[in-house]
Design a binder for these strands. Structure first.
Lengths: 203, 203
DNA sequence: GACTTTAGTCACAATAAGTGACTAATTCGC
DNA sequence: GCGAATTAGTCACTTATTGTGACTAAAGTC
């Protein structure tokens, strides 16, 4: 792990052989999103750096609980600080234990949601420390998108979006030229209405 | 009406002075989407040509009904055939009676959902008759997007997407040169030659 | 010092988008 | 009949965005 998205699973409460997405029932007077954040917090000890609703599912068939419908959320946490509590395990999103069809759909829609929001919310930046190199940032985007990006295009798009600003520090990472550190600093400089699109590197 | 999106409202069952989005409780063993389609069908006599879930809402505060959470859907029907039954009324989406904040949010998210799906699903084509002129099609896109499009660009994009095919018929619409009729006939050629906007499909 | 490795930039080609002006075919008023 | 008005359809040109390889820079390794 570390260069791929992961999904956090827990053993199903009914059938111990089965894995399932973490869930819980809502408590009265609580926002759905607040409930989702608590699910993550109970599993990881900290709230996600970003959450978004995926959708509501309910077709009268199998449910994780006995609830009429279930509302799924996706959230992201940086891998370093995300040590799961007992009963929870990270799996690579491309290679996880079998899930029910509905939960598989949720996982798939989750990655699509992430990738769709990537150019509209500062998701990648919150997954990194406050200062980072552009290579760090590019690798984070590649991890989240699941594909390689072209270096020059990535930086060009980044510059056009006025999202980062260099600071006067460099970091030497063993061999190779030291990289300049940057920080997230979205400029008021008329933000373009359209999202940022990075150039993909076709292998 | 006729050149703007409309929203179908009904008088609230509790307070007769208030308008609200049509709704109903789910019946057991029914998909959420099926329930949504039935809501539309009860109001209009026909199912929408396209439906999509907007999201689930539930924060312990005001609900349309007494349900814990409500799941909102958006659907589209062509205006010509969409004659509302008693108790339902169309309003221009830019000028409708006051709604609760949550329902206002639903309406707003509905238009964003439509516009986001417009280039991924054949929404516009299903709102038109099987054969149509390119001007018809452009007007439909303009209606759905809420903005004017440039004729030449629109046709160029259409051609690049291989979505329509001309048939050997022309329609004279009063004054002006007769327009050739087209029909929806998607991707006769391979689809993803780095084609339309969001097509990053590569092996 | 030559070689490897990572960072960072440049230049150019290819594609796509924005836009006005042009031609074509019809109806309308007279 | 004939020109103005009206709608359809296309072209050409400009500008912006994206794809891509090659280049320079600064470190470590041997």
């Amino acid at each position: 792990m570390g260069n791929e998205l992961g999904v956090l699973l827990t053993r199903s409460s009914s059938e111990r052989e089965r894995w399932s997405l973490p869930w819980r029932a809502t408590q009265g007077g609580e926002t759905l999103e607040a409930a989702a954040i608590r699910v993550a917090q109970d599993a990881l000890g900290e709230p996600p750096i970003w959450t978004e609703q995926i959708g509501a599912f309910g077709d009268g068939k199998r449910h994780p609980s006995d609830a009429e419908i279930s509302v799924a959320f996706v959230g992201l946490v940086p891998h370093e600080t995300a040590s799961p509590r007992a009963g929870y395990t990270w799996f690579p999103i491309g290679d996880h234990p079998p899930l029910t069809p509905r939960q598989r759909g949720m996982v798939e829609m989750a990655t699509r949601t992430i990738q769709g929001r990537l150019d509209q919310a500062p998701i990648a930046f919150r997954l990194l420390p406050p200062t980072f190199t552009l290579s760090d940032l590019q690798q984070m985007y590649e991890l989240l998108l699941g594909k390689r990006l072209h270096k020059a295009s990535f930086r060009r798009a980044l510059q056009a979006a006025w999202l980062v600003e260099p600071i006067d520090e460099w970091r030497s990472e063993g061999r190779g030229r030291p990289a300049q550190l940057f920080r997230y600093s979205p400029k008021k400089r008329r933000r373009s209405q359209r999202g940022i699109r990075f150039d993909f590197l076709y292998p």
